[in-house]
Simulated scan of single mutants.
Amino acid sequence: MAVTIKDIANALRISPSTVSRALNDHPNISEETKKVVSEKAKEMKYQTNFIAAGLRTKKSNSIGILVPHITSSFFASAIDGIQKVVSDNGYFTIICQSNEDYHNEIDQIRSLLSCKVEGVILSLSSKTNEYDHLEMLEAYDTPFVFFDRIAPGFDMPTVEANDFTGGFQAVEHLIKRGRKRIAHLGGPGLLGISKSRYEGYMEALKTYDYEINEDYVVFTDPDKDHGEIIEKMFADPKKGPDALFTFSDELAVEAILKLKSMGLNVPRDVSVVGFGNSNLCEIVEPHLTSVTHEPIEMGEAAADLLFKVIHNKHIPPHLKNRKFDSRVIIRDSSR
């Protein structure tokens, strides 16, 4: 059976109310008593009943996190950063994923609201292009922070990477490596970060007076097989692209494997640059050059902003919309 506050009180021969106050850091309880109660609670493996505590205090002490994919290296790292800040504030997290599905995103938000979370850190699915469901959060007075993927028209804090700069830097790197025909395998066309990375790609080509070939650009769903697209794009080794910048590391790895199967050498025949600097970069051969944007720090920033909103603290305008710089991590796939 689970250990209760009454069990701890009986073991220490003090009242349950004293134990409760000590565990909740009440100012009327001495530091010595708090220490004794805390040590006994750990010894007896006591765990706080957050639901019961929430019923008493009218607070759930919980933060919702909703991301497209928990298994994504970027979002997994970001969640690490979020959870550190959440834990430091005495809260816990409820983590959900939309699986890049708009309707699932709506259901997950409803679930988080039913759990009476005190705030939500939200990254939209790639299929989301209507935002009425986000008004549910406002209707329930539940503050939220946009993370990485942003919806227009909401006056809420945002944390995102500078995807435009990342795209520009990736293509600039390929240009400086002497590549002449640079293709782009983009993400979903509706997704804001896809557009920003593409715009960075285009701006780099314009800046360096490169010819723009629309056949070299394809927007696609990252969850689908892209073998046919890559094969078609690189069918003619002499006239086709000699470099590829992809929306994600996952797409870049898929491209490298496909190019190898076509008899092309990476990077001699085709240089490849991904986006995300995930663990995949060091696994694939050759090791993948990629754009990074510090997901752990971004997660910490999102949680910090959310707690400022929850506690009605003033957020200076220059901190309300955080944008993290990107940089290229150069490895063998583009040397």
Rank of each mutant, 00 (worst) to 15 (best):
K6T: 13
I14D: 00
S15K: 00
P16V: 07
T18L: 09
V19M: 05
P27G: 02
E31P: 02
V37G: 04
V37Y: 05
S38G: 08
A41I: 08
A41S: 13
Y46K: 04
N49W: 10
K58C: 06
G64F: 09
V67T: 11
H69D: 15
I70V: 13
F75V: 01
I82A: 11
K84A: 08
V85L: 04
V86K: 00
S87R: 08
N89W: 00
N89Q: 11
N89S: 11
F92L: 12
I95S: 04
I95H: 05
C96V: 12
N104L: 15
R110D: 15
R110M: 11
R110F: 05
S111D: 12
L112T: 08
K116Q: 15
G119E: 01
L122M: 03
L122W: 06
L124D: 06
N129T: 12
E130N: 12
Y131T: 06
L134C: 01
I150L: 03
M156V: 14
V159Q: 01
E160I: 15
E160V: 11
N162L: 06
G166M: 02
G167M: 03
Q169L: 14
A170D: 05
V171T: 09
H173V: 00
I175Q: 07
G178Y: 02
G178P: 05
R179Y: 10
H184K: 02
G186C: 12
G187H: 06
P188A: 04
G189Q: 14
L191R: 06
Y198Q: 13
M202I: 15
A204F: 07
L205A: 05
T207P: 06
Y208M: 01
Y208H: 13
E214D: 12
F219C: 08
D223P: 04
E228D: 11
I230P: 09
F234M: 01
K239W: 02
G240T: 00
A243L: 09
L244M: 09
T246R: 11
S248G: 08
L251M: 15
L257R: 15
K258E: 03
K258W: 00
L259T: 02
M262W: 00
N265V: 14
V272Y: 00
G274S: 02
N277A: 14
N279W: 11
L280W: 06
P286S: 02
P286Y: 00
H287A: 12
T289L: 05
E297M: 15
M298C: 09
A303L: 04
A303N: 04
F307W: 01
K308T: 06
K313C: 07
K313G: 10
H314C: 09
P316N: 10
K320P: 01
N321F: 00
S326Y: 14
R327W: 14
V328N: 09
I329K: 11
R331E: 07
D332N: 10
S333A: 08
R335N: 13
